[in-house]
């Protein structure tokens, strides 16, 4: 029974961690949004044209360049990256939980999930 208690405590912490991630990312997106609308609000949107690889904020380096000049869109993207990292933090948390329980099988399974997600994120940095 003791094991289940630990599971619950860990889950509770994880739930709060996820909510914190969502709150932080929403605040960043909101701030970026205000700047974006202030600078570009009166422009005409071109969302019917897909720019794909030509888009201005589709990789970490491009987003960081935009952040340096306080571009609203770059700040929004930063908030979205925080959001994407939130469930990944949960996976890392689970790993620590399984480590405490000395559950080797599930430590391995958790690492596999982390590896798959990392593959996708690295695809974004053009390494893969």
């Amino acid at each position: 029974m003791k094991k289940i208690m630990q599971d619950d405590d860990l889950e509770y912490a994880m739930g709060n961690l996820l909510r914190l991630g969502v709150v932080i990312s929403s605040i960043i997106v909101f701030i970026g949004g205000i700047i974006f609308l202030y600078k570009h609000g009166t422009h005409i949107p071109e969302y019917h044209i897909f720019k794909g690889n030509e888009s201005m904020f589709n990789s970490l380096p491009k987003i960081f360049i935009g952040l340096k000049s306080f571009k609203g869109q770059a700040i929004i993207q930063l908030g979205i990256i925080v959001l994407i990292l939130t469930p990944i933090a949960r996976i890392i948390f689970s790993f620590i939980g399984f480590l405490f329980e000395k559950d080797l099988l599930y430590m391995l399974l958790t690492l596999i999930v982390l590896a798959i997600i990392s593959f996708s994120l690295l695809a974004g940095t053009k390494i893969v």
């Binding site: 974006f36 949107p45 690889n53 869109q73 770059a74 929004i76 993207q77 997600i117």
Partner: peptide, 18 residues
């Protein structure tokens, strides 16, 4: 989250719409 990295890189995630 597992597909989000690829989406970002392919330009699917537009800040103005998100």
């Amino acid at each position: 989250a597992a597909s989000a990295g690829i989406y970002l890189y392919r330009g699917y995630i537009d800040p103005g719409i998100c």
